[in-house]
Design a protein around this nucleic acid. Sequence first.
DNA 1: ACTCTAATGGCACTGAGTGCCAGTCTTCAA
DNA 2: TTGAAGACTGGCACTCAGTGCCATTAGAGT
Lengths: 213, 213
Amino acid sequence: MVPTMYPNIPQAAPPAGEPIRDRLARAAFELFTVQGYESTTIDDITTAAGVARRTFFRHFPSKEDVIFPDHDSVLDRVRWYLGASAKTEPVFAVAEATRLIFESFMATPEQTLARYRLTREVAALRDREVASVARYERVLSDYLRSRLPNTSEAALAAHVAAASFVAAHNQVLREWLRLGGAKDPRPSLEAALATVADLMTPLIAHTDLERSG
Amino acid sequence: MVPTMYPNIPQAAPPAGEPIRDRLARAAFELFTVQGYESTTIDDITTAAGVARRTFFRHFPSKEDVIFPDHDSVLDRVRWYLGASAKTEPVFAVAEATRLIFESFMATPEQTLARYRLTREVAALRDREVASVARYERVLSDYLRSRLPNTSEAALAAHVAAASFVAAHNQVLREWLRLGGAKDPRPSLEAALATVADLMTPLIAHTDLERSG
DNA sequence: ACTCTAATGGCACTGAGTGCCAGTCTTCAA
DNA sequence: TTGAAGACTGGCACTCAGTGCCATTAGAGT
């Protein structure tokens, strides 16, 4: 039998502590910021991380995903919270859901800031970010629709309210990012949420006459 | 000298009337709906259209773009209109801009409907659509910010208002699409715009005390 | 030592998108 | 009529993202 010529020689065991997924993400961030997103290949990333090219796609479905947080798990948390808010005032529940989303960004401020710098310059990443935000908006509007009558007025109110909360969220987050993460954005978020809630409560209530009286 | 072996034999002249760009778009639409988006290659499209593969990318920057209308020209029209609305009531101008966007979809109803069916099933196309919408929202909020004081309250109001108008637009459009383009959506659009305008006018006015008071 | 499982390495392949140049067609001027 | 210039197309070669498949390795449990 032909000897197998020793493939798969074990790599010089890397830092040994950090999980491969984190090594890949860190290497990608560094390379993207140093030499740009487009001109960084998967090979560059995997070489820097000391793993095989194929391994990258076992941890991230695409090159874009490597810089984004785990939106799916945040979405699950938001859905779970809203699913348990069947008796809460709808506008209040959506405001709290918006807080949950915001806090998921504030959990890793440095990464959020680094990602912001990249998304400002790379159109593909910006579009990806926008798509994620749209998914949050969708979850919020689905919840509101489930709490309101099945009329086109209620559907309109649900979408407008969801879009407004998301817009408020984004505006506060962007302002914080623009200032380089200087001061605590939570007071600004609370003010924005209060403004939007005051605006949307009568709109929502008006479509829900049974509840509002 | 070596004879050049007759490359580039002229194709059997196709329908001869329709521009190549339209032939490509039509072929792409048909193939996408029949055999799916992912399983249709650029080769399939160009073969069906009777042109070379390279020609596709001279008319469309990517496979996704082939089904989308010319958003850039619509954006230009919207920007032009808003640029000429320096003295119009801001909320009124944004409502009119939203009408412009809506009418650009209604200009080619069949194509809008066909695109909707595709975007419902293909995630990549849905994300692309969302990104386009975000660009419209951006134009609206930029205009509102230019008409308001340079405060964070005004910025918040601008983003919320822009998002609300876009959400109203999308909701009316989606409802029309869901019904297969049955009845004229313009009355619904007017009602939605009126609702949002009534909601946003005091918010905008409040951030612009100089003008309102 | 053995088995089972999960993760990785490596290879081959498809397909999108780009750069480059040669050939074609149209237009306009001489 | 000729020819020069510009715009468009065909064709080729190439890079790179992403996938399928299988061999290999490491670790846990028996």
